[in-house]
Amino acid sequence: MTRKYIDCRECPSDVKCSVALCADSDDELMEAAVQHAVAVHQHTDSPELRSQLKTFFHDGTPPA
């Protein structure tokens, strides 16, 4: 199984966030990414947010 990750440093934001999240599935990663986006970046959970976040998903683990 290939791990998936999303790295906040790649996402446009006013907050200089350096968090990277990884998980074993798209669904698990999406839930963690949405929770982070809502709690830290003050986004609203919506289909548009989820669609945008999905474009930042990568296979593997985040670079150091």
Rank of each mutant, 00 (worst) to 15 (best):
M1E: 12
L49I: 09
S51T: 13
Y5V: 00
S18I: 05
V19Q: 11
P47G: 05
E48G: 07
T55A: 09
D27E: 15
A20Q: 02
H58P: 01
Q42E: 14
S51A: 15
V15I: 14
K16P: 07
P12Q: 09
H36R: 03
S25L: 02
H43N: 14
K16N: 12
E10D: 15
E31Q: 15
F56G: 02
C8I: 00
K16W: 03
A32W: 03
D26M: 00
L53I: 12
T61I: 10
T2M: 11
R50G: 07
K16R: 11
T61S: 14
L53T: 09
D24P: 00
D7M: 08
T2V: 15
H58A: 02
E48V: 13
T2D: 07
R9T: 15
F57K: 05
S18P: 06
E48H: 09
L49F: 04
H36F: 03
S46W: 04
E10K: 13
K54V: 00
P62I: 07
D26H: 03
D24M: 02
C8N: 09
L53V: 10
L21P: 08
A37C: 12
M30T: 04
D27A: 15
V34W: 04
V34Q: 04
E31N: 09
L49T: 05
E31W: 01
L53K: 07
P63V: 06
P12E: 12
C17F: 01
V38L: 08
D14V: 12
D14T: 12
S18K: 14
D14I: 13
D26T: 02
D14R: 14
M30R: 02
S46T: 15
I6V: 15
V38E: 05
D45W: 05
A33M: 04
H41A: 11
T2L: 09
S25C: 02
D26L: 00
M30H: 01
K16I: 11
K4W: 15
A33K: 04
E10N: 10
T44R: 13
V34A: 07
A37K: 00
M30L: 14
P63D: 13
D24A: 08
L49V: 06
C17S: 07
L49H: 05
S46G: 04
D14M: 14
P63L: 06
R3F: 08
K4I: 10
D27I: 02
C11E: 06
T44K: 14
S51K: 13
V19G: 00
S18L: 08
L21N: 10
V19E: 09
P12W: 10
F57R: 05
H41C: 06
A64G: 11
A20G: 01
E10V: 03
Q52C: 10
Q52V: 14
